[in-house]
């Protein structure tokens, strides 16, 4: 796992299609997430239909699609917040099943950032970040708090450590959520529409943190509507509609020359 704290710069705006990391050969990298024929039903309604994909180490995958297409459901199945009924999900070699020990192992390697932040309101920001390392990773309190402070510096808000989440702006809260997920030193980071609940002014600060994270080599799976982010940072884009994967491709392929009709329709609506 790469050391996130090395990165200090932001590569803004001038790249396209992850150009900073273009030319990387990911074909020999390890398979981090393997999904084969994953299907999920909510009662009679089928939310996921035969979803198959492989995400390699250090790869950044952006999942696009209209609402109700199953993007959030799929990403939540990967850390077992939802259960899939058919198919196979293997995360870093561990198969996701009903075995509680496997689920706990997977969850400690996979960090998740939610659309609604979901910070713990009764704890200070620093305690929000250090709670899990202390009780789940069994770190000594002083070490966990030092790590928390370092992570808060990384996401750009070291001075807010003693405040409560309710006293922070939306963008700051989401950055604390990212720091909290990073505190567990995960191998994979999942983002479920991280900027959808934010004011436009604050979206950029969160996207910058995510960009930094990607450049430092984290394996990321991002569900988002931010096309700019997808163009700049993604290695691959997966387009989903009605529970099925419709098209997969690099950003250049996807935005300039998509194959499927449904993809073209979606792009015309989004980029119109």
């Amino acid at each position: 796992m790469t050391d996130v704290t090395d990165v200090t710069e932001t590569e803004t705006g001038t790249d396209s299609g992850g150009a900073a990391r273009s030319g990387r050969d990911l074909s020999s990298a390890k398979d981090m997430i393997v999904c084969e024929g994953v299907s999920k039903w909510y009662g009679d309604f089928q939310a996921l239909e035969g979803v198959s994909a492989t995400i390699k180490e250090q790869e950044v995958v952006v999942v696009l699609g209209p609402s109700g297409s199953g993007k959030s459901t799929w990403i939540r199945c990967i850390n077992r917040l939802e259960e899939h009924q058919e198919g196979l999900i293997v995360v870093d070699g561990v198969e996701l099943s009903n075995d509680l020990r496997n689920i706990e192992k997977v969850r400690s390697e996979v960090g998740m950032v939610f659309q609604q932040f979901n910070l713990f309101p009764h704890l200070k920001v620093r305690d929000n970040v250090s709670l899990a390392p202390i009780w789940v990773r069994k770190k000594p309190k002083a070490e966990a708090e030092e790590q928390a402070q370092a992570l808060l510096e990384l996401v750009g808000i070291p001075e807010q450590a003693d405040k409560f989440p309710g006293q922070l702006s939306g963008g700051q809260q989401q950055r604390v959520a990212i720091a909290r997920a990073l505190a567990m030193e995960p191998k994979i980071m999942l983002f479920d529409e991280p900027t959808s609940a934010l004011d436009p002014e604050m979206i950029k600060e969160v996207l910058d943190v995510m960009k930094n994270l990607a450049l430092s080599g984290m394996t990321m799976m991002v569900v988002t509507h931010e096309m700019g982010f997808a163009k700049e940072v993604a290695d691959r884009i997966i387009f989903m509609e009605e529970g099925q994967i419709v098209e997969v491709g690099t950003p250049e392929h996807f935005f300039t020359n998509p194959t499927e009709d449904r993809t073209k329709l979606f792009l015309s609506q989004i980029l119109a």
């Binding site: 917040l81 969850r107 939610f114 979901n118 899990a132």
Partner: peptide, 10 residues
């Protein structure tokens, strides 16, 4: 969301 956040952190 609180339950999910706690579970997601392990």
């Amino acid at each position: 969301g609180q339950h999910e956040a706690a579970e997601a952190v392990g």
